[in-house]
Design a protein around this nucleic acid. Structure first.
Length: 578
RNA sequence: GCCCCUGUAGCUUAAUGGAUAAAGUAGCGCUCUUCUAAGGCGUUGAUGUGGGUUCGAUUCCUACCAGGGGCACCA
């Protein structure tokens, strides 16, 4: 990567001059007059050396310039401002990037990292409709999965649905004591055959609207029965699972999300005893108020609970069994778990406990957390029945996209079926982008107006730009071009595009490292914006000369390719026409 | 009470300690006989408050203010 080349140049220059080199920071200056890359090493070094920053910068720049005679990707190096060293990339380099994009196409920017990484995401709870709350984990997790796969990692995606625990005891209680009470076997069967996720959720909501101690006790009892493999509890629970997964599959198919493995919490049901034994054996568990807990050295974290006072296991126990299972089965280099921010402490405890007990050793354990969708007033609460069902949102978005399409003149030639496909790509893409374009850790205020926004910084803007590019390319009959640099003077709009395209691979890298798909969004939006400006001021098909036309076609093809690659990482479709 | 996170334009968001804090949206103008106007151009407008570190702070430290989350029998 060009970035590394420049870092090396700086490093070598510093070594040659006898300057102590630490980390060299390169950034892209905002102002084009400051070049394509800039480093502040001179400013940092000046202090240590007791010299003037400008002077240090001049020395480094001079040394680098001397070397540049053999490097043709860099045009020049300048010292500016208080002592910044600015690098200007050459046109040769930009053209190399262009042809590289057109040659590698969908693989442009891909890496060849060989490590193995597990990404856990989505993880909805059964017996509840897929709420908007799980949208974030699904989308961000999928994007992280895509990013790492693109970089060459062996990625393993895991969906870890909540299909175990006392909430399910509550629903079983409600089913048994309310819905099925006093019914004949035949009636029971009829009710269960027709039951929907909505019904299950209503039972759950009803439980919390009017809870008595007796009900709480009943719920605990039913969960206990479930754990003890009581036939009736078991079959009702199976029914809940089945109904729920049918719903999830529908949502995933709408979202075009595919997760490699579904391993629910219940999978670890019989693997927790071992965990408890391990902790006891190693003297890492203590009894406290009838429960079994794990305390951490120096109380750096609050204690976590392995067994409740009634002997039932907890989420913590389950996640430990989960860690042990994943690590021994797949031997990954890293595990990334994508969940809401409210689970931060829990995962700190799980990660630390996994290391203490020896389940995890050198593996990198990451909790990539996201902020929550909230109302203007506060948090959504399932218990209060405030959930917004994702499916409603998705259908609404597609409907709205449809309306816009009907009003638009640009889709005149499209068949009804093509229009429907575009509506889906735009509606679903809009919702995905609305979510992914925001920094993961921030909260998102749920706003119908905003989530269905199809203008400005949104997926349709990017899709539209892509479709425009494709339209030009269709009309041009672009042939494999042998492009000559001679004789083409680039306009500022063209230069702006050239100076952006090569950064795609850096952005992908950074987005993966930081688990921040929003960086990809920022980049693609920026690119689309610059292309639209170019489009409005630089005619492609009617360019003054043949050379200019070819060049602009190349540029258009490269921009289209990068937008497509970026959207594909985000899981957003790019229709050829819209 | 203790711990963690977040305060940027009317609203929603960007910005690895750098050069003039960047967009979208809403408002007001302009722009289709010209490659898709779901576009483009112009214009108004912001770093919660007080200290500190630094050549340089939205970014780091500290106090305060405001909001959110967590702190053993939910997950």
């Amino acid at each position: 990567m060009i970035k590394e080349e420049i870092k090396n140049l700086v490093r070598q220059a510093c070594l040659k001059l006898g300057f102590p080199v630490e980390e060299i920071v390169l950034e892209h200056p905002e102002n084009v007059e400051h070049g394509d890359y800039s480093t502040n090493v001179a400013l940092v070094l000046a202090k240590q050396l007791g010299k003037k920053p400008r002077e240090v910068a001049e020395n480094i720049a001079k040394t680098i310039n001397y070397k540049l005679r053999t490097v043709n990707s860099i045009e020049k190096v300048e010292v500016a401002g208080p002592g910044f060293i600015n690098f200007f990339l050459s046109k040769e380099y930009f053209f190399d990037v262009l042809s590289s994009i057109l040659k590698k196409k969908g693989k442009y920017g891909a890496g060849s990292e060989k490590k193995k990484i597990i990404v856990e995401y989505s993880s909805p709870n059964i017996a509840k409709p897929f709420g908007i709350g799980h949208l974030r984990s699904t989308l961000i997790g999928q994007a992280i999965y895509n990013l790492y796969t693109f970089l060459g990692y062996k990625t393993i995606g895991i969906n870890y649905p909540g299909d175990w625990g006392t909430p399910h005891g509550k629903i079983l209680y409600q089913l048994k004591e309310k819905l099925l009470k006093g019914k004949t076997e035949k009636e029971k069967k009829e009710i269960l055959d027709k039951i929907t996720v909505q019904d299950l959720e209503s039972l759950y909501v009803a439980f919390h609207q009017n809870t008595t101690l007796q009900m709480e006790e009943g719920a605990r009892l039913w969960f206990k029965k479930l754990e003890q493999k009581d036939t009736e509890a078991r079959s009702l629970w199976e029914k809940m699972r089945e109904v729920s997964f049918r719903e999830f599959e529908r949502i995933y198919s709408l979202l075009n999300v595919k997760i490699d493995h579904v391993i629910g919490e219940s999978f670890f049901e019989d693997k927790m005893e071992v965990v408890v034994e391990d902790f006891k054996k190693k003297g890492l568990a203590q009894e406290s108020q009838g429960a079994l807990i794990v305390s951490f050295p120096n109380e750096i974290l609050p204690p976590a609970m392995l067994l409740k006072s009634d002997g039932a296991t907890t989420y913590f126990t389950r996640d430990l069994a989960n860690m042990e299972y994943r690590i021994s089965k797949w031997k990954p280099d890293a595990i990334v778990i994508e969940t809401g921010v409210e689970q931060t402490l829990h995962f700190q405890q799980v990660f630390l406990a996994s290391k203490l007990i020896g389940y995890a050793k050198d593996e990198e354990l990451v909790h990539a957390f996201h902020g929550l969708y909230r109302t203007k007033e506060g948090k959504f609460s399932t218990r209060k029945g405030q959930t917004i069902h994702l499916e409603d949102v998705l259908r609404e978005a597609i409907k709205k996209a449809h309306e816009i399409i009907e009003q638009s003149e640009t889709v005149r030639g499209l068949s009804e079926q093509e229009k429907a496909e575009v509506a889906k790509a735009v509606g679903i893409g809009g919702i995905k982008y609305n979510d992914l374009s925001q920094h993961p850790s921030g909260d998102i205020v749920f706003d119908w107006g905003k989530i269905l926004n199809l203008k400005g910084n949104s997926a349709p803007y990017l899709q539209y730009t892509y479709a425009r590019c494709k339209s030009i390319l269709r009309k041009s009959k672009l042939n494999p071009i042998k492009f000559k640099l001679n004789g083409v003077k680039s306009s500022p709009e063209e230069m702006a595009l050239l100076r952006l395209l090569y950064r795609f691979e850096e952005v992908v890298q950074e987005a993966a490292e930081k688990f921040s798909p929003n960086l990809v969004c920022n980049f693609v939006f920026d690119l689309a914006q610059r292309y639209n400006l170019f489009y409005n001021t630089n005619p492609v098909l009617k360019a003054e000369t043949k050379e200019l036309k070819d060049f602009r076609l190349l540029l258009t093809a490269a921009v289209a390719q990068i937008i497509k690659n970026g959207l594909s990482l985000l899981g957003i479709a790019a229709p050829e026409r819209m």
